[in-house]
Design a protein around this nucleic acid. Structure first.
Lengths: 210, 210
DNA sequence: TTTATATTTGACCAAATGGTTAAACTAAAT
DNA sequence: ATTTAGTTTAACCATTTGGTCAAATATAAA
């Protein structure tokens, strides 16, 4: 039945997501996925021909989900400063709920770089820049953000948000030794990161004037 | 012979390093390692009993190498600002030569978090803080870096340095689309990151005074 | 030179793993 | 009720893979 059908196919997809995200493509085992879904291994091949197919389905969904999280930043009609706060709040919150996604995605992109082309092919980066520039012309000028240095700025912002999750095991261990709580650190990071970036920009602005 | 011996064992180690760093533990194949070393697969087991043993040997060497790169920052007798510049220059330069190490290390720590304990067990973090505090008491106060928020600060700095390498495929692809050069971006990042961090601190300082 | 020791190899093995298939089962259509 | 189509399963297969072993080779010691 369509109902039962969806249930099975969906269960497979969910279990596959779990296993792939946790172990990566190379470490994942089809039997493991079948076990978690509580079904026979053959069903995996019945619904998704091969491990590769199944993995692709999962990866595309995950990567899409992650990239979508960046979009609202462009839509929201907020001053740059507020957008920065908005971004860190939303992005870190999303990763708090899905702490393994960043590592998973970056990792698999590393293993298979061609995948990236497919992910970013629809994005017209020059248009993106035009949009941003239109929205924040004065602020960008004030903060000395140019088309030339925007990659530096963007990767700084992205890194501040993503790095804690990519390096989670290390950071969490060290913090444990210091008697601090990692979850608390994440919570505080939403504000700390935003403040840090905004401070850097404002100082830049001050230096500019001289 | 000791000479031949070392040559073989070393060749194995080098090939293993290549393969493990490139493919990770799960993706690496013993046969692949043997082929690159130009020797019989059995020799791998002769010198390093199992794949796990071989991997451990490689990982410990790599991780040690990476962590050592953080040490000079503490030794150097420089003002904080200069230390920050020194760190980004040295750390990014090291990773430029070994662009895959960060992903490799973080990944494998993710796969086997217990490994971290072994890596950081010798580090007395409280003592580390005392050292830093002694070296930069005034600056820390000025910039409002406390024992409570130092994890935020340290991960920010580490992230700015490491993230470009962890997310290299994504960043490089997007930059290519923009007509920019990734290697150039890395080169510029040494200064950009330092400036950015120092700016953030200085603005913090300015706000503090009010 | 002969003996003992270390090194290297090819053949081999057992387990794991992705994938196939034919049969059994379920449920809707006739 | 019977046929038909879709779903699920157990048994099976071929290949890969980490690992072993005994024989062969080279090297040092006697």
């Amino acid at each position: 039945m369509t109902e039962e059908d969806k249930q099975t196919e969906e269960k497979i997809f969910e279990s596959a997501t779990e296993v792939f995200v946790e172990k990566g493509m190379d470490g994942a085992r089809m039997q493991d996925i079948a076990n978690r879904a509580g079904i026979n291994k053959s069903l995996l091949h019945y619904y998704y021909r091969t491990k590769d197919h199944l993995f692709n389905a999962v990866f595309e969904m995950i990567a899409g989900q992650m990239f979508k999280k960046f979009a609202p930043v462009l839509d929201e009609n907020l001053p740059l400063e507020e957008k920065i706060r908005f971004f860190f709040r939303e992005h870190i919150a999303f990763m708090q709920k899905n702490p393994r996604l960043p590592s998973f995605i970056l990792n698999e992109l590393h293993r298979n770089p061609e995948r990236i082309r497919k992910l970013i092919q629809n994005i017209d980066i020059n248009k993106l820049w035009t949009t941003i520039e239109a929205q924040h012309k004065e602020e960008l000028k004030r903060y000395n953000i140019t088309k030339e240095n925007i990659p530096q700025f963007m990767t700084t912002v992205a890194g501040m948000s993503v790095f804690p999750f990519v390096a989670r095991p290390v950071i969490a261990s060290i913090m444990e030794k210091m008697g601090y709580d990692f979850d608390n650190y994440l919570e505080e990071r939403k504000e700390y990161a935003a403040d840090f970036v905004i401070n850097a920009l404002k100082k830049q602005e001050a230096s500019n004037k001289m």
